[in-house]
Design a protein around this nucleic acid. Structure first.
Lengths: 279, 279
DNA sequence: TCGCGCCGGCGCG
DNA sequence: TCGCGCCGGCGCG
C-alpha cells in the first residue's frame, strides 16, 4: 500500500496504475459494483495513509481508472461475442494524432485540409483526441489481435491495452473507422461541451474526407459519450448539433454526440457495448 | 473578515461578493497589480481564518472576481473614451438566453431554427452563455446608460453591472450585437476547447440570422477570449476553425476565437479593450 | 433542489 | 519542462 504513493520533496505523487491494480486486488469489480463507490473506497484508503494527497491528484486518476475498466470490458466483449468491430484506447494528441490511423491517402487529405485551412486564414483544426476509437475490421488487410480475454487488472495488461492502437497506424481505410467514444466519470455544464466540440469537429473532418473522395453513401461516423451519471440537463446539453450541419438548408441537422450512456458498473458497460458494437 | 465566510452545518461557504469587496478594501487594484497575486493573497487570508475552505470554492470565486474586474474596467472605458460600443456582463443561460437580446423578429428566427432543428432530428443548439456581450449602440433606439465611472468595488456596483444587460433585452437589431467575450483565469487543454465550441456555435447562429434576413455584407461577429496567462499551445488550440466554415469549399475558413488576450492587470484590460472596442 | 459555469491540481510521456 | 486531458467542489439564483 505504501508503495502506491511516492514522495518528491515531501509532495506526494500517486502512482496511478499501481494504485488501481493494488487496491482492486488485481481483479475486475463484480458486475454490479458501482464504480463510484469503488473509486470512493480507493480514495479513502489512499487518503487514509497519505493525507496530503490532493483532490486534483485523485481526479486525474479517476479518469484513467474509468477508461481502463471500459477498455478491458471492450476487449473482452470482442472476443466473447466474436465481433469484427473493436474499441481501442487512444493516447493523447501529442503522442499520436488520430488522423495517423488512416492510410496515407486519407491522412494526406487531412494534412492537406489542415494546411490549406491554416494558410487561408491562420486558422487550425484542433480538438482533443477522443478516449476510444471504434474500428471495423471488415477487411483482411487489418492486423488481427490476440483472442485472449483479460481477467486480471495488472500494469502489464493496462499497458497492453493502451498501446494496442499502434497496430493500426497508417492502416485504416475510410470505412474502418466507424466511430469514437469519450468518457468522463462526471459531467458539468461546461465540461460536457467539450464532448460536443470533439464530436462536432470529428464529424466535420469525416464529411471533408467524404467530399474529397466523393463517397456518395458513407456509412457515417458515430460519436458516443458516457458518464457515471447522466442528468436530463446533460442529455439535452449533449444533443447539440454538429455546427457544420446547420448553416445551409440542404443538410439535415446532425447531432455532435449520437448517444450518451450512463455507465457505473460492468453490466452497464456491457449494455452500452451492445449498442455500440453491432457487427 | 469573519463575516465573509458563513458556516452551514460546519461547512464553510464563501460569500463571494462580500469577500472580494472587503478584502480588496473596496478599491480597484493598482493598474500594474497582478490579478494572480491579488487572488493568491485573498486566498491566503481566507484560508488563514477558515482552513476548511476548499480549493473548489476558491476556484468558483476566482472566476467571478476576474469577470468583475474586467466588467468595471469596460464600464469606465466607455465613459472615458466616449465609445458607442460597450461590453456588458451576461448571466448564465438559465437566467437569460442571449438570443433574448435580439428584437422579436430576429429572436423568432432563432426560436424557429431551434424548433426546426430539434424537430427534424432530435438535435439542439446548445452552448453556454459567453461572459460578456459587446454591443454597438449605433441607433438612438437603444437605451442610454449612466455616465458615472465606477471607482469603488462594492456589492451595489457589482450587482448593477451584473444586471445592466437587462436594459437591452428585446432591443437589439442585427448590427447591435457585434461580439462576445469570454474569460477564464486559467486555461487547460480541455477547458480551452469550451471557448472554441462557444465561439463556433455563436458564429453559426449569426450566419443563420444573416441567411434568414439575406444580409449581403454583414459586419461580422467577433468572439474574443482572455486569460491571466496564455501559452503558445493555448493560442494554437484556440485558433480552431468555426466548424461550419470547413465543409464546403466556397466558404473561407473562419476562426472560432478571433483573438485571445493575456490579461493579468488593469493595464492589460485597457489594452485589450482598445482592440475590442473600436467605435 | 438543481442547473449554470466557475477553475486549479494533477500523472504521465 | 511542458503539453495533454483528467475531474470534483463549489456560490448563486
Amino acid at each position: 500500500m505504501s508503495s502506491v504513493v511516492e514522495y518528491k520533496n515531501g509532495k506526494p505523487t500517486i502512482k496511478n496504475v499501481e494504485t488501481f491494480c493494488s487496491l482492486t486486488n488485481f481483479a475486475l469489480p463484480r458486475s454490479d459494483t458501482s464504480f463510484r463507490e469503488l473509486f470512493k473506497e480507493i480514495d479513502k484508503k489512499v487518503k487514509g495513509e497519505h493525507p496530503k494527497v490532493t483532490q486534483g491528484a485523485l481526479n486525474n486518476c479517476h479518469g484513467d481508472w474509468y477508461e481502463w475498466l471500459i477498455a478491458i470490458q471492450a476487449w473482452n466483449y470482442r472476443i466473447k461475442y466474436q465481433k469484427r468491430q473493436l474499441m481501442l484506447l487512444l493516447p493523447n494528441i501529442s503522442r499520436a494524432d488520430l488522423a495517423s490511423l488512416y492510410v496515407e491517402g486519407l491522412n494526406n487529405h487531412l494534412v492537406d485540409l489542415r494546411l490549406k485551412v491554416e494558410k487561408s486564414n491562420n486558422v487550425k483544426l484542433i480538438t482533443s483526441n477522443p478516449d476510444f476509437v471504434i474500428l471495423d475490421i471488415d477487411e483482411d488487410k487489418l492486423p488481427s489481435l490476440d483472442e485472449e480475454p483479460i481477467t486480471q487488472v495488472t500494469p502489464q495488461n493496462i499497458r497492453y491495452l493502451e498501446e494496442c492502437y499502434k497496430h493500426f497506424i497508417g492502416k485504416c481505410n475510410f470505412n474502418n473507422i466507424v466511430g469514437y467514444f469519450s468518457v468522463k466519470t462526471s459531467l458539468r455544464p461546461d465540461r460536457r461541451l467539450q464532448l460536443a466540440h470533439e464530436g462536432s469537429l470529428l464529424k466535420a473532418l469525416y464529411v471533408h474526407l467524404q467530399t474529397r473522395d466523393w463517397i456518395i453513401e458513407p456509412i457515417g461516423l458515430k460519436y458516443y459519450a458516457a458518464s457515471q451519471s447522466v442528468t436530463k440537463a446533460d442529455r439535452e446539453g449533449l444533443q447539440t448539433v454538429a455546427t457544420h450541419s446547420i448553416t445551409n438548408v440542404q443538410s439535415i441537422p446532425q447531432a455532435a454526440v449520437d448517444h450518451v450512456f450512463s455507465i457505473d458498473n460492468i453490466n452497464e458497460i456491457e449494455s452500452a457495448l451492445s449498442e455500440i458494437i453491432i457487427y
